[in-house]
Structure formats: structure tokens, C-alpha cells
Design a protein around this nucleic acid. Structure first.
Lengths: 151, 151
DNA sequence: CATCATGTTACTTGTCTTGTTACGATCCCT
DNA sequence: AGGGATCGTAACAAGACAAGTAACATGATG
């Protein structure tokens, strides 16, 4: 399986949305992500439910950012898209009553829990405006042409 | 996608192999893992190539443990099975030239690299005899019947 | 030589993200 | 009121990958 890119995509979108300020349609966002408007609506639904963005139907509708990037952490976005499985590996469930399998799964699970806690802690410690600032910093060191997929 | 359970399964097998000492056929191991002998051979191939187990064909053949459990870490086994992807999430690759996407992927990648480093460090710090000891400890607190899938 | 067991390839299955099509609902504009 | 823009949602196909399965070759033992 290829990696689930929804978290990365949503972060990408949210930062671009702040740059525009006016609403963006699913079609525009889809072009930005090199994908399909339905995929955009599907994934952004969670962000809407959590109150990070708002969607409006009809003429002139589209998606708008509701909260400032400084109020949104990577962890918030991860949760909003449904907290997909972080790990591609996991415990076996072949002989649940076997004490050896249990001991293996405990050892493996402990290590994974620690790694997951660290990852979530890191995601929770970074707000989107931090990433936007990184972007601005890199932009300053470059020619201003074709810096962004949405510009 | 369900989680990749090959690491857990191989740990399970190696510990059981030490308890038997005589060689185990792929069929026996398959029953132990509630799976199929071909899957066993496929997954154990990496362990053989790395010299942790040996396989012998023909009458009386099967798999035998070559090195003591105290010489094998969880990380060794992880590497032997081909270092499968640890994470189910990952960076997007939709607009590689977009500096925003790049900045997002850097932030995400940094957090994931840290979590991966921690996880691998933990796996490298645990040897299989430690898990076997955990198993023995738990066994001592239980009635001796049906403690193990291979007994 | 017959049997047992591994080695290997090819094909199928299950699951999950992603992509796509279709259709309904809502809102703006003329 | 009508028409087009836009989201919401359901249904389904595609692609990837672990896992399961079948078939057959290879090698070792007795």
C-alpha cells in the first residue's frame, strides 16, 4: 500500500487557503492537489465538522478558512481527518491465547505506543503558521516565479 | 489495509523454535501461526539469508534456530524481513515544485523521522530472550495447561 | 525410487486509499 | 422563475500490498 497522504494534503490546502483569503472551490483545490473535487470534499468534510473550515454551496460558494493557522496544530488536522492508522506494521492475531504471541505483542506494542506518543506530541506542538513561516522563509531566498502550485 | 503482521509472526516463531530445539517444518509453523506453509517459507526466507535460522530439505528437514535468542534483537528481525514500511501515513507528492507542499512534507517528515528513530532504537534494545523471559514469568503465574499454541 | 520438505512462481483474496461517475440539494444571478 | 455554479453523497472501479492458495520443481533421506 502506498502511504496515506490525506494529512499532508490537508495541511497543504489549509496553508494555501490562508494566502488567498477568498473562498476556494473544490475544483480549484483539486487542481492544486492534482486530484479530483470529490476527493477534496470527502477529505475536507472532517475539517468542516471540526470547525476549521466552512463550505458554502451555490454560486460564489466554496471553502473558507474559519480559524487562524496559529490555532491549528498538525495534530488537530490529523484528528479531523479521522485519525487514520499511523503504522503499517502491527501485532499478529493468530493465536490470541498463546502466551508467547501475547508477550511478543506486548513488547512490540510498547515500542509502538512510545513512538506513537512521540509522533502525536510532535504533531501537537507544531501549528500551521509555523509551516507557513518556513515557506515564507524559503520563498525569500528564491526567485519569485512559480513558487507555489496555487499562485 | 490491515497491519503488516510479519514482524510479530517471526518473533513468535523464533521464540517457539528455541523451546523445541528440534527442527520444525513449515507445516508445523503454519499451524502455529494459523496460516499457510508457503507464507511461512516466504517470510522466513529473510531470516535464513541473514543467518538466524537454517532450513533443510527432505526427510527430517525443516527449520532450526542457528543463533541464541540473546543474539537477536527485534530490530534484527525487522531488517531480516525486508524493513517493511513502518508508517501508514506519508507525504503527498502532488505538486513537488510547490514550496508549500515541500514545507509541509519537511515538517511531517521531521516528526516521522523522530518517531521512526525512536521505534527502531527501542526495537534494537530488546533481544528475543527478554521476550522469552516475559513469557516464562507470566507462565509461572498460571496453570500449566494450554499456555502455548505449540505445546 | 518413493516420500518428505523446502523453493519458487503465479494467481486469487481482502482491505484501504484514491479516483471517477452520477445525481440530488442549495444558492446566486439574471 | 430559470439556469448555472457548487457542495453532499452514494456507488463503484482502480491500484497497491499483505496474505492466502495451488502447482510444480529441487533436493535429501531412507
Amino acid at each position: 500500500m502506498r502511504n496515506d497522504s490525506r494529512l499532508s494534503r490537508m495541511l497543504h490546502v489549509l496553508i494555501h487557503m490562508e494566502k488567498h483569503q477568498h473562498s476556494a472551490t473544490s475544483d480549484m483545490i483539486a487542481k492544486m492537489l492534482n486530484t479530483n473535487p470529490v476527493v477534496v470534499r470527502r477529505t475536507m468534510a472532517g475539517l468542516r465538522e471540526q470547525g476549521y473550515v466552512r463550505s458554502e454551496k451555490g454560486h460564489g460558494g466554496g471553502w473558507t478558512l474559519v480559524r487562524p493557522l496559529s490555532d491549528i496544530t498538525l495534530l488537530d488536522v490529523y484528528r479531523a481527518i479521522g485519525e487514520p492508522n499511523l503504522f503499517a506494521i502491527g501485532p499478529a492475531d493468530d493465536q490470541p491465547q498463546c502466551l508467547v504471541e501475547q508477550a511478543v505483542n506486548v513488547a512490540l506494542g510498547d515500542a509502538m505506543k512510545e513512538a506513537q506518543a512521540l509522533l502525536l506530541r510532535r504533531l501537537g506542538g507544531v501549528t500551521l503558521d509555523k509551516i507557513a513561516a518556513d515557506f515564507e522563509a524559503k520563498l525569500a531566498t528564491r526567485p519569485a516565479t512559480s513558487y507555489s502550485c496555487a499562485s
